[in-house]
């Protein structure tokens, strides 16, 4: 993944480049077709279409950090290449699996936020699937922390809810 940015530039040197500016002020060069996959960038490029030189355009993405963008860009790029070919769904699924398999919970959350903000729905769907899979056998406490939700039940209210279906709390994985 680390070398993909350098190898990509030679494979598609004719491709126009766009500069994306991350929340922490870093500038990242990407192919225009990759940038167009990000809704805010697409909107920005359409609004600034009178600019003759694409190279001069800097698209601000104030909600995504450079660290997250630099993971997203190679993913989107490879995903675009995959879907351009008449490949089987299995291949795309294998690629998605490979991308998500080793993500930490924190990274998963960050990517999900970014995919949601950038409107990369195919990635969001995959991340939602992975998240659902990760949390389905987990405890209530784990899910509160994972989703960043504060418990606002009183202990009595929570006990009542739990008593309604105690069987749903059996066989839960260790956090």
């Amino acid at each position: 993944m680390a070398s993909s940015s350098s190898s990509s530039s030679c494979s598609s040197s004719s491709e126009k480049k766009i500069t994306l500016k991350s929340s922490d002020g870093e500038a990242l060069n990407v192919e225009k077709n990759v940038a167009l996959e990000f809704e805010p960038a697409k909107g920005f490029l359409e609004d600034n279409s009178e600019e003759a030189d694409d190279e001069a355009i800097v698209v601000p993405l104030p909600n995504v950090s450079a660290a997250v963008l630099s993971e997203l860009i190679p993913y989107v790029k490879q995903r675009l290449e995959l879907s351009a070919k008449p490949v089987q769904k299995k291949l795309i699924k294998a690629f998605d699996d490979q991308f998500t398999r080793h993500l930490s919970d924190d990274k998963l959350g960050e990517l999900m936020l970014a995919a949601n903000y950038l409107g990369v729905n195919y990635l969001l769907d995959v991340l939602c699937d992975v998240t659902a899979d990760r949390i389905k056998n987990k405890s209530v406490e784990y899910v509160r922390e994972f989703l960043g939700i504060q418990n606002d039940f009183t202990p009595e209210e929570e006990a009542e809810l739990r008593a309604q279906c105690p069987w749903a709390f059996e066989g839960v994985d260790q956090d």
Binding site: M112, L113, N116, L124, D125, C128, D129, T131, A132, I135, K136, N137, S139, V140, V143, R144, L147, I149, Q150, N151, D152, F153, E158, L161, R162, Q164, C165, W167, A168, F169, V172
Partner: peptide, 21 residues
């Protein structure tokens, strides 16, 4: 996004996660 994730879960998980908030 949370709604989307929850919609993919089995019923047993959802009944448990009603306690989240």
């Amino acid at each position: 996004v949370i709604t989307e994730i929850l919609s993919l879960l089995p019923v047993k998980s959802l009944l448990r996660f009603r306690c989240v908030s």
